[in-house]
Amino acid sequence: MKRYCMTLDLKDDPKLVGEYVQWHKEVWHEVKDSLLQSGVSALEIYLLGNRLCMIMETDDSFSFERKAEMDAANIKVQEWEALMWKYQQALPGAKPGEKWMLMEKIFSL
């Protein structure tokens, strides 16, 4: 098992943040299925203000490249990502089109 921690900001608008939270109370089953099929075994998203933190646990079959290929071929995942981009904004230093950015673990107990 591998664990990844990623971050992303939402647009700094309480109404949009609230809508984003509502969408995540009923994530489309196609999106959940895609995550599981890619090797994600657990995923949690935390919110503070407009900053998101995602913790993702994966099995040995998971790779970001494979997940990106699977996402590109899945129409419903593409629809979800386009919808979520209404609420999200790239972090400073993000490459064009980059959303979630991988965080570096600096401490473990």
Rank of each mutant, 00 (worst) to 15 (best):
M1W: 07
M1I: 06
C5K: 02
M6Q: 08
M6A: 09
L8M: 02
L16Q: 08
V17N: 05
G18F: 04
G18K: 07
E19C: 11
E19M: 12
Y20Q: 04
V21H: 05
Q22T: 07
H24D: 15
K25T: 06
K25G: 14
V27Q: 12
W28H: 09
H29R: 14
V31F: 03
S34N: 15
L35V: 02
L36M: 13
S38E: 12
S38T: 06
G39M: 12
V40Y: 00
A42M: 09
A42P: 01
L43T: 06
E44L: 04
I45C: 13
Y46R: 10
Y46P: 08
L47R: 10
G49V: 04
R51A: 13
C53K: 10
E57V: 01
D60Q: 08
S63D: 09
F64A: 09
E65Q: 07
A68Y: 00
E69A: 12
M70L: 09
D71P: 01
D71T: 01
A73H: 04
N74E: 08
N74C: 03
V77T: 02
V77R: 06
W80Q: 11
W80G: 09
E81R: 07
E81H: 02
E81L: 03
A82N: 12
A82R: 03
A82Q: 10
L83E: 15
Q88K: 04
G93A: 05
A94D: 13
P96S: 11
G97I: 03
G97R: 09
E98V: 01
K99W: 02
L102R: 11
L102G: 08
I106A: 13
I106N: 13
F107K: 08
